Computed example of a mutant assay.
Amino acid sequence: MSQTKVLVIDDDPNVCEIIRLYFTKQQIDLVVAHNGKQGIEMMEVENPDVIVLDVMMPEMDGFETCREIRKKWDTPIIMLTAKDEEFDRVLGLELGADDYVTKPFSPRELVARIRAILRRMQPKAKVEEDAATVMSFDQLTIDIDKREVIAAGEKINFRPKEFDLLVQLAKSPGSVLSREQLLEQVWGFDYFGDVRTIDVHIKKIRQRLEKLPYECIHTVWGIGYKFGVED
């Protein structure tokens, strides 16, 4: 098995050194960029498995860096923030981050989150042979094997977790699934984040399906969401 490579983008040399020392013990290959522009340049040549991205950096902050990375890559991003504020967490998720860690943090926790993300990226066991691999609704087709979505005659690009979440909802049309259920089914037991992750991804899915003449994901207030082609 190849060694995990992590790109850390952080302007604080002390943080980078702490991470380097612990990653070396854990046999994690570390590459470091000290600003957002350098981090984006390193993405082109290093092809990391995971990105650890600091929010508070001069010139190009972590949010802007995340936005630029997401224009070209789906590499998992863990954001480091010194602020334990909901705004920062939600904004990071909306921009495409996969998880966040609040400073001060322990290197052990950071490694645990990296490994949890990599586990969630592993291919899942194939569905039973008699299970449907293509789900068709009015002007909406979801091909599980090809990981394709056709809405109103147009192929729509989804990020991996957005697609998985849509599939999970579409498999049980009319059934109400709580945010906790969706976190467990899509992200797994070892996800460290909070239920707001679901809300952010649902918002993205709705935006991608906006050409449909109907709303297919409905909010059930106080509980979660359900899938249906008509309300």
Rank of each mutant, 00 (worst) to 15 (best):
L165M: 12
S2N: 15
I40D: 04
M43K: 11
D130M: 10
P107Q: 10
E215K: 15
A131M: 09
V50G: 00
T219L: 13
V186M: 09
R119H: 04
V220K: 14
C16M: 04
Q122V: 11
K146R: 12
T197G: 10
A170F: 11
L93I: 03
G153A: 06
K83T: 03
P76Y: 04
V111S: 07
A82C: 13
R196P: 08
D98S: 07
Q3E: 13
D54M: 09
D11R: 06
V31E: 06
E128M: 04
E230H: 14
E180L: 12
M43G: 08
K204Y: 02
L91W: 10
V149N: 03
V149T: 02
L30G: 02
M79I: 11
V149K: 04
I198S: 04
V55G: 00
K5I: 11
I18W: 01
W221M: 12
E94H: 06
I117M: 12
M79K: 02
D12C: 14
D99I: 08
D199S: 15
G224P: 12
Q139A: 08
P107L: 03
E162W: 03
L212E: 01
S2E: 14
R115Q: 13
I205K: 02
L91P: 01
I205Q: 00
M135N: 12
V176Y: 10
K71G: 01
L21V: 14
G153D: 08
E85M: 15
M57G: 01
T24Q: 15
S178Y: 13
L212D: 00
I28P: 13
N157Q: 12
V45G: 07
L118A: 09
P173G: 13
I78H: 01
L212Q: 08
C16D: 06
D231G: 14
K71H: 07
K204M: 06
D74G: 00
Y22M: 04
V229R: 06
K171W: 07
T4H: 10
I142E: 06
E154L: 12
E86S: 10
D84N: 15
I18E: 10
K171M: 13
Q181D: 15
M60H: 08
A152K: 11
S178M: 11
I150T: 12
M79Q: 00
I117H: 07
I51K: 03
M60L: 15
Q181K: 15
H218I: 11
M42C: 06
Y225N: 06
V167D: 02
